[in-house]
Amino acid sequence: MKKVIALAVSFLPTHMRPEIRELYLSTLIANFGVAMVLLFEPIFLYTRGYSIQQIALFFIIVYVLYIVLMPIGGHVAKEFGYEHSIFISTFIFIAYYFALYNITNSPILFLVTPALYALQKAFYWPAYHADFARYANRLEDAREVGGLESMVLIVNVLAPFVAGSIVQFFGFGALFICVSIILVLSNLPLMVTRETFVPKSFPYGTAFRNLFSPERRLEFITYLGYGEELIALTIWPIFMSIVVGNFFNLGGIIAISAFITALFALYVGRRSDLRNKRLTLRVGSFIYSMTWLQRALVHSPLGVLASDTLGRLGKELISVPLVSLTYEEAQRSSIMQTVIFFEMSLSVGKLIALALVYTLAAVLAGTAAFTVFFVFAGLMALLYGARTYVS
Rank of each mutant, 00 (worst) to 15 (best):
F93Y: 15
P71R: 11
Y204L: 06
F197P: 01
P71K: 13
S257V: 13
A77P: 09
A258G: 08
R332I: 11
P18V: 14
A159H: 03
A127P: 00
E41C: 07
S180E: 02
L211I: 13
Q168L: 10
G311W: 04
I60D: 00
L148N: 13
R143P: 05
I318C: 06
K277D: 00
A99L: 08
S26V: 07
Y101W: 14
F110L: 04
L383W: 02
S391E: 14
V155W: 10
A365V: 13
Y50W: 02
I60M: 04
G349S: 01
R270Q: 07
A159P: 03
F373R: 06
S319R: 06
L351M: 09
A255P: 08
M290R: 09
S186Y: 04
I221W: 00
A386T: 12
T193A: 09
G33C: 07
G205H: 13
L188R: 14
S85L: 10
F370V: 08
S324R: 06
L224P: 01
L360I: 15
G164Y: 05
G314T: 15
L325M: 15
H129A: 04
A369E: 09
T206V: 13
S150H: 04
T280I: 09
P301N: 00
Q331S: 06
A369F: 15
F373W: 13
L211C: 08
I72P: 00
R134D: 07
L188Y: 13
F202Q: 08
G349W: 00
L383I: 02
Q53A: 14
G171L: 05
L383K: 03
Q331W: 08
S391F: 10
V184F: 11
G49L: 11
E41M: 11
L364F: 14
R332V: 10
F32D: 05
V179I: 08
V152S: 04
V37H: 03
I67V: 01
P214E: 07
L297F: 03
L354F: 15
V34P: 06
F40A: 05
P237E: 00
I182Y: 02
E229H: 15
P237V: 01
E149N: 09
